[in-house]
C-alpha cells in the first residue's frame, strides 16, 4: 500500500458523490485520472484492504430486524456449537470473545418474530441458553480509520 492508496482509502471513507461520473469527479479532486482511481480501488478490494465499497444500507429502517446474541459455551463444546450457530443463514457474524459469554453472534431476519424463532431453535439444538441483546437505542454507528 503506497501513499496514493492511503489517500484513496481516506478520501473514499468519508463519502462518494451521487453524480453521473462520480469516479471522474473524485479523481479530479485528487489530481489523478478516473482510470487510475478505478484500478486502484479494484485492487484494494481484491486484496481485501477494503471489505466493501458502495452504499451502506440501514437494514432496520428497511423493515428488517437485528439482534446481538450471546452464549456461554463450555470450551470443549465450542467448535460443535459454532458449527450449529453458523449453519443458519440468518446469522451474519459470529465472534469468539474472551469472557464467560464467549460466543457473540449477530442475527438478521426480515421480521422481529423470526429472531426469537431462530434463537429458540438454536437453543434446542445446542442445549444451552441463548441471551438475546436487541438494541434498545442506537447512539452511533460508523467509523473512519485513517491509514
Amino acid at each position: 500500500m503506497d501513499e496514493l492508496d492511503r489517500k484513496i482509502i481516506n478520501v473514499l471513507q468519508s463519502g462518494f458523490p451521487l453524480s453521473r461520473e462520480p469516479y471522474a469527479e473524485v479523481a479530479a479532486q485528487m489530481g489523478i485520472t478516473e482510470t487510475e482511481l478505478i484500478t486502484r480501488l479494484q485492487c484494494l478490494l481484491d486484496n481485501k484492504t477494503l471489505s466493501r465499497f458502495g452504499p451502506m444500507y440501514d437494514a432496520q429502517k428497511m423493515g428488517g430486524s437485528f439482534s446481538l446474541v450471546a452464549i456461554k459455551v463450555p470450551e470443549e463444546d465450542f467448535d460443535a456449537v459454532a458449527e450449529v450457530v453458523n449453519s443458519y443463514s440468518e446469522v451474519a457474524h459470529n465472534y469468539q470473545r474472551d469472557h464467560k459469554f464467549n460466543m457473540w453472534y449477530v442475527i438478521a431476519t426480515e421480521t422481529p418474530g423470526q429472531i426469537a424463532e431462530v434463537n429458540r431453535e438454536i437453543e434446542q439444538r445446542i442445549g444451552l441458553k441463548v441471551f438475546n441483546f436487541p438494541k434498545l437505542a442506537e447512539y452511533f454507528v460508523g467509523l473512519q480509520l485513517p491509514v
Binding site: 484513496i8 463519502g15 462518494f16 451521487l18 429502517k61
Partner: peptide, 26 residues
C-alpha cells in the same frame, strides 16, 4: 436512480456511500 438514492440517503436508509476498510488488514 440518483434522485432516489439521494432520498434514501436523506431518510437514513443509506447511511453513507463509502469505502469500508478491513480493520484487520489495516
Amino acid at each position: 436512480v440518483i434522485m432516489r438514492m439521494h432520498n434514501m440517503q436523506q431518510y437514513g436508509i443509506i447511511r453513507r456511500i463509502a469505502a469500508v476498510p478491513n480493520h484487520y488488514a489495516l
